[in-house]
């Protein structure tokens, strides 16, 4: 886990996690997106990167009002296609299983957190269909282009989330 921006303030607690390994082709999508968010998000937003160990996500989102996960999905029928999934409402489609070479996948972390009552208030995933996950390969052009688009969409969603959460707090 690498924290690349620590959110400040107590009005909202939002976390964005870029999941993936930058040294494995399109698996680097998550880190590529969240690095673009630094300096472009509300101050209450924390940003981190995580590789491997999806179970640790449950620790990461403890006490958070909202969490956005950014990850690559494989194999992709259409590399670069973007999916936004509200994980509190919808299960990850099996054909869009967010990739992991380890025993526990993001879907497992969500399932376990749901069973244990440890889900954050909101949990959204942005997934992009990948083309290549070869060791040492760069991010494919289609997925790199999608990263720019997803960074804009996540930044916009973070601003809306902040407004909603601060509003909720003011009316509480």
């Amino acid at each position: 886990m690498t924290a690349i921006a620590n959110g400040t303030g107590s009005t909202c607690r939002i976390l964005v996690v870029g999941i993936g390994n930058p040294d494995r082709g399109d698996d680097g999508f998550g880190p590529l997106v969240v690095r673009q968010l630094v300096g472009r998000v509300p101050p209450c937003v924390s940003i981190m990167e995580r590789t491997g160990d999806a179970l640790a996500l449950i620790e990461d989102w403890a006490g958070r009002d909202a969490v956005i996960l950014v990850d690559a999905a494989a194999p992709g029928a259409k590399p670069g296609r973007i999916h936004r999934i509200d994980l509190l409402e919808d299960a990850l489609p099996t054909e869009l299983s967010l990739s992991s070479t380890h025993a526990f996948r993001v879907a497992d972390a969500v399932g376990l957190a749901r069973a244990l009552g440890l889900l954050p208030g909101r949990l959204i995933a942005y997934a992009v269909e990948g083309a290549s996950f070869d060791p040492g390969a760069p991010v494919s052009p289609q997925v790199a282009a999608a990263a720019d688009d997803v960074a804009l969409r996540v930044a916009a969603e973070l601003r809306l989330l902040e407004e909603e959460l601060v509003g909720d707090a003011a009316h509480a």
Binding site: L55, D108, L116
Partner: peptide, 21 residues
């Protein structure tokens, strides 16, 4: 798996996660 087990053995699974942490 552990996820299915968590529904009935939540405390044990939470314990496991706390140890791992």
């Amino acid at each position: 798996d552990g996820i299915q087990m968590a529904a009935k053995h939540g405390d044990a699974v939470r314990n496991g996660l706390a140890l791992k942490k």
